[in-house]
């Protein structure tokens, strides 16, 4: 299993007491599996992804990624673990503005212990996403769709075991959305990498064999809580 969650609980504490946001008894994702989590905005899908990425510590429960208990590590080790094993794609603002497309891809492997940023490999990945000819362009010179394709190349450059994509098509029109998701799926398949996509768009969800309705997964949501 690439992701193994047990008795996950996330509560926000307010003056009125604890407010449950996530409550997931059990959830797993297999190696190289491609999964879409769909559900309405504000239901806590991104929060789950942040926990799996090691960016947000839960209130309780176990989160195992690549066989390692994520929150048993120090924050610094968790950063390094993320750098080595995970890639995270956001809806927007994924690229560093002062870097060219090629540099943005290269920086994806910079903080991955063991992965050596390779210019040729980065160029191949840009070619794979159809942007080799734009390698010297800055994000401000590219469309949102092109930026997302660069992000996919960056996510793959360090050969991660898992890619987490949070609404990767949120800023794109339906035509480009489908194109980006297909590209993401194909690339992950080619690189033997598991993929978890969070989306509230059903059109995106239909692209995946395994679709998870977040309202059923998150017991806090099912009980009428939620973020």
């Amino acid at each position: 299993m690439i992701v193994k969650i047990k008795e996950l609980l996330l509560e926000y504490r307010t003056g009125a007491g604890a407010f449950p946001v996530l409550e997931i008894p059990e959830w797993t994702i297999g190696a190289q599996e491609q999964v879409v989590i769909f559900g309405p905005s504000g239901s806590g899908k991104s929060t789950l992804l942040n926990i799996v990425a090691g960016l947000l510590p839960p209130t309780g429960g176990s989160v195992e990624v690549c066989g390692c208990e994520l929150f048993g590590m120090s924050e610094s080790l968790r950063d390094k673990f993320r750098g080595r094993n995970l890639s995270y794609i956001f809806q927007s603002f994924n690229l560093l503005q002062g870097y060219t497309a090629l540099e943005n891809v290269l920086i994806g492997a910079t903080f991955s212990p063991g992965a050596r940023p390779d210019r040729n490999q980065a160029m191949l990945l840009l070619e794979r996403v159809g942007l080799a000819h734009r390698h010297h362009h800055y994000p401000s010179q590219m469309s949102i769709g092109e930026q997302q394709r660069v992000t996919i190349a960056r996510a793959l450059v360090k050969k991660p075991k898992l890619i987490l994509a949070d609404e990767p098509t949120g800023s794109l029109d339906p035509h480009h959305s489908g194109e980006v998701v297909r590209l993401l799926r194909e690339a992950c398949g080619e690189h033997n990498c598991a993929l978890v996509v969070v989306s509230h768009e059903t059109i995106i969800a239909r692209e995946f064999e395994r679709q998870i309705d977040f309202r059923q997964l998150n017991r806090a949501q099912a009980d009428g809580g939620g973020k």
Partner: peptide, 16 residues
């Protein structure tokens, strides 16, 4: 801030 947060997300530690 966003750039630095992105670097953290890519695996850069707080010390980095």
């Amino acid at each position: 801030r966003r750039d630095l947060a992105l670097l953290r997300c890519l695996g850069a530690t707080r010390r980095t």
